[in-house]
């Protein structure tokens, strides 16, 4: 059983389980599934700086911080006890392309070749981690949600603004991954 759980889980198992988070949070305490709000609560708690957007009672949203702390713990368990002992399987077409960028290490879900502490101080590493992270935080808050809040929770509740947001996430991703990222990875 444990051996089976250690293998990567197929989409038709993982997807429905992720979808069940929506009713689980609603039934447990009337909470709408969403993750990027946690970043706002952290700002409100740590550096509100008199900015109106961060003036609210973040303690009332404490559940969201517990939820993301749980995700971090899940990462520890998922990679520790349930860790996949084999190299990650990646589509051959992608592997072929990544060789050109010097990415050949498939031991971790986060590519060690480009995302490590040494590379952080190179232009490429800085763009991939610091600038990329900044865009994630800025963009999700500007859009009012991320993949969980808009794509999963919003679409589950048939909200058309969430469909607009989701389509824009995908367009942004297609443009970046195909047209811009290859040049960053060649740096």
């Amino acid at each position: 059983m444990l051996e089976l759980l250690k293998q990567p889980w197929p989409w038709y198992i993982a997807g429905p389980l992720i979808g069940l988070t929506v009713p689980a949070l609603l039934l447990l305490g009337n909470k709408s599934f969403g993750i990027s709000s946690s970043l706002r609560h952290i700002c409100a708690a740590c550096v509100p700086a008199k900015i109106p957007f961060f003036q609210y009672n973040w303690k009332k949203e404490m559940w969201n911080l517990f939820f993301v702390a749980g995700i971090l713990l899940g990462g520890i368990v998922g990679a520790g006890i349930l860790g996949n002992p084999n190299a990650i399987v990646v589509t051959p077409a992608l592997m072929e392309e990544l060789v050109d960028y010097g990415i050949t290490n498939y031991n971790n879900l986060v590519p060690e070749d480009i995302m490590n502490w040494q590379s952080l101080f190179t232009v490429k590493g800085f763009l991939l981690m610091a600038v990329g992270g900044f865009l994630v935080g800025f963009g999700t808050r500007y859009a009012g949600g991320c993949t969980s809040g808009h794509a999963i929770m919003g679409l589950s509740n048939l909200q058309w603004p969430s469909l607009v947001a989701t389509i824009c996430f995908m367009i942004g991703g297609f443009i970046m991954a195909n047209l811009i990222l290859p040049y960053i990875l060649l740096l």
Binding site: I76, L109, G139, R141, A143, V164, A165, G172, M176
Partner: peptide, 25 residues
């Protein structure tokens, strides 16, 4: 915001939730 997040998602390979899990791994 959606487009900007999309750029960041493709670069980092992570949305906000996965960032927490990646650190855990």
């Amino acid at each position: 915001g959606g487009l900007i997040f999309g750029f960041g998602w493709a670069i980092t390979g992570a949305c906000p939730g996965p960032l927490f899990a990646q650190i855990g791994t």
